[in-house]
Design a protein around this nucleic acid. Structure first.
Lengths: 296, 296
DNA sequence: TAAAAATACTCCATAGGTATTTTAT
DNA sequence: ATAAAATACCTATGGAGTATTTTTA
């Protein structure tokens, strides 16, 4: 049984006339006659009782029209679903965000995906650390990671999303909180609130390296886990912090963000499994790129 | 989308190996490779991640295998149903029996149809008169009529089933009831139980004609509608009757059937609409033919 | 290096087109 | 007599086969 012939048969049953049906099918009338003959040979019974002035479907013809419609519908739906899948507009994708991107990028990505890829079942996870993200990518917990640069070669493909300038976070009552900008050495005597270095926070590494470059080591350090907690801790007066600029979206009572002159930067990347060619993954990566470009 | 390619794809997904799948499909390996390439081009996305030593379906591939199985199943069922319909093993057929065939042929036909054509929805109707049957055929109340000969040319096609000898029906206590056989003139003085002549019973016509040929007219006539009532009436002593031999299957307390020497005969036919080419009709006619041949 | 898939090339079957015949009203 | 379907005949495209190359584990 051939789908094209079934299509022809359905049109023929609708038109009840070989000439008109052939015209609609954009084939010549004899071709349609032959198609029906083939169908009837396959069915083993006439499907249409036809003469020059009459046209009637047999029982078998009735049955076949109905079934053909159902079949062709099912084929159409399958083709449609394949197309959606091929465009990454259907399926599932799990995205993990490194801590500092959780409050800035994650909601934008979620919103954009909701409107642009309604068929995609997108799972987002925030407040993660770079090593956990890489591990999560490899063990398929995540399909996409918005993370700090990772050493390549471990089956992960990485693209730079943006370069983030670091800014200081000070309690409102801090003596430097009114300043337009300051330099890292001015914070040499402060207690720093940071992510635990044991848990391999890229941000902590970069900040400590920057301090070291600036000629000092923070005299005191308070360790907290999440970025949100970090900002809250500064508000509570536990110390100061240095975070990437986009964390500013997390504006909090009792906290001031102050630019750092000659500030170091930290890169934000999107990473995927090197062997992942899923359209959904491509689509999500592309959408994350646009979320980053999106100025707001 | 082509059904043959879908078939190939399902087999390929099962075998997970082009060579083996091609073998099962009885085509060469390159042909299968190309079929998959066409499918992937149509789908717009890879369906199989393949290398010399590995084979893995993509999401789209998974989807397509599942859908393809469903589609091919549906196609198979449709082909099967068409085949059944073509063989008259599926569908509906309505059969009407003339009165005297009701107790003899009708049950045999019903039983045979039940075992041989279980898919056919057979409706049987008994105790009918020839004119009603012809009318019923034409207005599509019946598809097949087991009836007396009808004048042709009215859109009805008729085939002789058998020639039935007429026999006498006598009450057990009748003076002639003990005889092996008798002749029609011996019944010249009897009251006859018959179907109403007004309702155009072929049997009544034949019997009256036979009496007339034998040189007498029944002095008294009792009219009853059904064959069963007719036999019951004889048992009740209302008179004698002349019926086709097969009515003997209707054996009743108080009744004796006696052969008639040189008895007239009456033909039993099967009739269908001349334009009815339905396989179910053909099948039922054929089955009725065999029911008649069936000696029991 | 060996097994497996992909490509190159040839051939044929099938589906379509045009011209014409047959058929039924 | 005429409209419509069927047939005859030709052509071309697509799918299959064989031989071969490319790839990767």
């Amino acid at each position: 049984m051939d789908l094209d012939r079934l299509r022809s048969f359905v049109v023929l049953a609708e038109e009840r006339h070989f000439g008109r049906a052939a015209e609609r099918l954009r084939i010549a009338q004899p071709a349609l006659s032959r198609q029906l003959q083939v169908l009837e040979r396959e069915a083993g019974t006439p499907l249409v009782l036809r003469s020059t002035r009459s046209f009637e479907l047999t029982e078998a013809g009735d049955l076949l029209v109905e079934r053909a419609r159902q079949l062709l519908d099912a084929v159409g739906r399958t083709e449609q679903d394949l197309r959606l899948l091929a465009q990454g507009r259907m399926g599932t994708s799990s995205v993990g965000f490194v801590g500092t991107a959780t409050y800035d990028l994650l909601p934008r990505v979620a919103r954009l995906a909701h409107t642009e890829l309604p068929g995609l079942d997108l799972h987002v996870h925030g407040e993660l650390l770079a090593p956990a993200l890489v591990q999560g990518l490899l063990d398929r917990t995540y399909d996409v990671a918005v993370t700090r640069p990772v050493d390549p070669g471990r089956g992960v493909r990485t693209t730079l999303l943006r370069r983030e300038r670091l800014v200081a976070v000070l309690p409102t009552h801090h003596r430097l909180a009114g300043r337009e900008r300051l330099t890292l050495p001015e914070l040499a005597e402060e207690t720093f609130v940071m992510h635990p270095s044991a848990r391999a926070s890229s941000l902590t590494e970069v900040v400590l390296a920057a301090c070291s470059d600036a000629g000092f080591t923070p005299p005191g350090v308070v360790e907290v886990s999440e970025t949100s907690t970090l900002v809250v801790s500064v508000a509570a007066g536990l110390g100061v912090a240095v975070v990437p600029q986009p964390v500013r979206t997390l504006s909090l009572e009792g906290v001031r963000y102050v630019s750092l002159r000659g500030a170091p930067t930290i890169d934000l990347c999107v990473a995927v499994r090197a062997d992942d060619a899923r359209p959904a993954t491509r689509r999500v990566v592309e959408l994350i790129g646009r979320s980053v470009a999106q100025r707001r």
